[in-house]
Amino acid sequence: MSAALNLNHEPVTKIANGKLAMWAFLASELMFFTGFFGTFIVLRNTNYQAFFEASHHLSWPLALLNTFILIGSSLTMALAIYNLERKNNGMFQTYLGLTILGAFGFLIVKYFEYGAKWQDGLFPGQENHTLFYSFYFIMTGFHALHVIAGMIPMGFMLMKSFTKNGYPHPVKVETLGLYWHFVDLMWIFIFPALYLIFP
């Protein structure tokens, strides 16, 4: 991703082309998740009792923990960019490392959450729970895939920063940061929609 990033600026907007491309990508990603949300809400309205019962097996405290982890990693990502812009390279590495650690933490919590569901037989194919858990695994699964997809370039940038002259251009990190904040944004909606919306 970072190798293909064009750092030139579009002449009218003065926004780096790579960054503009990332915003376009995020807009398409937003529509991708909107499809899930829209379908989820419509099917929830027509299968309310099944969704209601199935949702009560979800662990909202674990999801709350993951929300705090993602918010924290969003902060550390912003601080990593801030420090890179000021050439505080050590602090950049620390904060980027903390962001990756946050991403790992999120996936570990998600692993325990999925494991508990699997042990309790709460997955698609089970009576009364198929529809809800199809959405649960698709929405949280795609979100987790986005987390993994963000960790790969972050890990690459962190490793490269330990080599001679290996620090990335701040625009590249900020572009990656946009993606990482988007992952946080989607979780901000997934959390209440799946875990809290049922009375």
Binding site: T13, L20, W23, L26, A27, L30, M31, F33, F37, A193
Partner: peptide, 19 residues
Amino acid sequence: NPYLRFFVYVPVFLFFVLT
């Protein structure tokens, strides 16, 4: 740049309306 905001407002608005 404020241009960027307009670029983002449209899908965000649609998302909120739908939700």
